[in-house]
């Protein structure tokens, strides 16, 4: 009875509806405000400003680098946490997720203490190789990786736990060694989880502010990423801040939309 089904109404309790509508308004209105206040007429000209482009380029490059680093180190960490069998595994998992809840500024201070010129590793790097990390683009990438890698680890570990390890056994009986099992069976099976983790990680890196400004400073073209530029512009040039924010919003939406399509297209 399709007609009946279309007429049937699902009744929503008012006690749920009211807060839901208010909450949605709270989430959507600021974005709308951004669009309403945007200086649309001057937008093309403002977007072409070199500082604007430099900040955008730096943000994209560093966030992508941080994601690549997180993938390189994070996937093996996730594998160890999900499949490894060693004492202290739960402690390690807790430690790995600390940056998730740690205020980013604290993370920046901690990074400075280790990689700073007089820090634990920083001093040695400086003396031995004459390498200084703080207040460089490298520092931006490190700060981003520090705060965003846990997102990737948590996501990939969840996929690994959800994946049936017996497929790996089946692969072994077919002659696949441990590394081949990982690359040919495990990784393809958890690919959606890795992708989701990478997107989360990239988005978190793109928005990174606290750790970056503490550990890398705020030098235009070198360490001034989009969020830092927005903050700085807000003090002097409100319109520039709005344009930068709009740009950041657009980038996020585009990435999210393109990945969503890929996810839904996957079998």
């Amino acid at each position: 009875m399709p007609a009946q089904r279309t007429r049937r109404r699902r009744r929503v309790p008012a006690a749920l509806l009211a807060p839901a509508v208010l909450g949605l308004a709270f989430l959507i209105l600021p974005l709308a405000g951004l669009l309403i206040r945007a200086p649309w007429a001057e937008l093309p000209a403002r977007l072409a400003e070199p500082e604007m482009l430099a900040a955008l380029r730096l943000s994209l490059v560093t966030a992508t680098s941080a994601t690549a680093l997180s993938l390189f180190f994070g996937v093996p960490i996730a594998w160890l946490l999900a499949r490894g069998d060693f004492p202290g595994r739960s402690l390690l998992r807790a430690l790995v997720t600390v940056p998730l809840v740690l205020p980013p500024v604290v993370g920046g201070v901690a990074l400075l203490l280790v990689f700073g010129r007089s820090g634990l590793i920083g001093a040695w790097l400086h003396e031995r190789f004459d390498v200084t990390i703080p207040f460089t683009t490298t520092a931006v990438v490190l700060a981003m990786t520090f705060v965003s890698m846990p997102f990737l680890i948590v996501s990939v570990e969840g996929s690994l736990r959800g994946a049936d390890a017996r497929f790996e056994e089946a692969a072994a009986t077919l002659g696949a060694g441990r590394w081949t099992v990982f690359t040919h069976v495990t990784l393809p099976m958890i690919a959606p989880g890795v992708l989701a983790g990478a997107v989360l990680c990239w988005a978190r890196a793109l928005g990174e502010f606290g750790a970056t400004i503490t550990f890398a400073g705020n030098f235009p073209g070198r360490t001034q990423t989009m969020p830092l530029a927005v903050y700085l512009a807000l003090q002097t040039d409100l319109e520039a801040a709005i344009v930068l924010s709009l740009l950041l919003l657009a980038v996020s939406v585009v990435v999210l939309a393109s990945l969503r399509d890929r996810w839904t297209a996957a079998p």
Binding site: E169, A170, T173, L174, P188
Partner: peptide, 14 residues
């Protein structure tokens, strides 16, 4: 050896 598993365990991505 060759193994036929109870629920086959065919690789879903291949």
């Amino acid at each position: 050896i060759g193994v036929v598993f109870q629920d086959y365990l065919l690789f879903p991505h291949l």
